[in-house]
């Protein structure tokens, strides 16, 4: 089961069991909904800004362990960051889960690096990336439902 443990790291299982920043901000400045029709994952993100920094954010929805943990860890990872930093993080995370040679970026990703295992499971990349696409849509102020299909 060693291979599977690379994917389902303890941190991921923990965030799946008890997701952080779960819920909805009533006075949000930005929001977006995401949907992965293949697995039925649904996600909604609300976000509050202070200047161009993320003051607070929440996510809610249902999904597999990878998508839930990814959303949970993402909310922790981007809180306090500027919107520009957030876009850079999006790109780095995208590379982490899709690109075999992306190891160099892991340090800057901090805890988010636990998702490196996803790249060996191409069918699961969309699960890991859904929250990020949804966040991207929120900060770019696009309000159509984001779909990873």
């Amino acid at each position: 089961m060693s291979d599977l443990r690379d994917l389902y790291q303890e941190v991921i299982l923990d965030h799946n069991r008890s997701p952080r920043n779960f819920g909805r901000l009533e006075d949000a400045d930005l929001h977006a909904d995401g949907h992965n029709p293949l697995c039925g994952d649904k996600l909604s993100i609300t976000l509050k800004l202070a200047g161009d920094r993320v003051a607070d954010l929440r996510f809610e929805g249902s999904g597999c362990a990878i998508s839930k943990a990814s959303a949970s860890l993402m909310t922790e990872g981007v809180k306090g960051r500027t919107l520009d930093e957030l876009r850079g993080l999006f790109d780095r995370f995208h590379r982490l889960v899709t690109d075999q040679g992306a190891a160099a970026d892991e340090a800057e990703l901090g805890k988010l690096a636990v998702f490196a295992g996803v790249r060996d499971y191409p069918a699961r990349v969309k699960c890991a990336i859904l929250a990020w696409h949804t966040l991207r849509a929120a900060v770019d102020d696009r309000h159509e439902v984001v779909s990873t299909e």
């Binding site: 291979d3 389902y8 029709p37 697995c39 039925g40 994952d41 597999c64 362990a65 839930k68 699961r124």
Partner: peptide, 21 residues
């Protein structure tokens, strides 16, 4: 456990099932 996770884990045991809608 979400069905998608079930699918990935049983696949590692050689079992091909479908998950989704």
């Amino acid at each position: 456990v979400h069905p998608h996770d079930i699918g990935t884990i049983v696949d590692a045991e050689g079992v091909a099932i479908r998950t989704g809608h």
